[in-house]
Amino acid sequence: MIYKKVCLLGAPGVGKTSLIQRFVSGLFDERYLVTIGAKIDARTVVTPSGEVQLMLWDLNGDEMFERVQSSYLRGMHGYLLVFDPTRPDTLEFALRLRETVEARGASVPSVMIANKADLHVDWQVSAAQITALDVYGLTRASAKTGAGVEATFATLAQLMLQGRREE
């Protein structure tokens, strides 16, 4: 079994914990629970390159920039960058976060997620902006309905295993 450390990054309330809960347990909780410190879950994913167990580090969004500086991200093999298109500021937050991580020298595979796809009508981010994000491997997902969640995690797992093979 191959293990990979995956961190979920993003502004507070964008749905990082919900995405993990949906992916790991198949559940969704309407309540918003603030993540304190870090919470870790695990799930095995089967990809064309083989089986991999993802260790999912769910980090507190409030202190995200501090966390980037901290040891939580140390050694991660990949990360999911989550934002909420109904709140454009979370996209800015995500992009700044990405820059910070890259500047820190963490050159690892990542996937950007536009969560809350079920609330598409309420999206405040323009189509042009969304299209521009394709360079970051943007996927659309909804932790509430489960749409796109499996595929997003599978994509990241595949990217990480490809990176391993290329090495």
Binding site: Y3, K5, M55, G75, M76
Partner: peptide, 8 residues
């Protein structure tokens, strides 16, 4: 445990 990644 691998120290950097925390993986077992």
């Amino acid at each position: 445990i691998h120290r950097e990644t925390g993986l077992v």
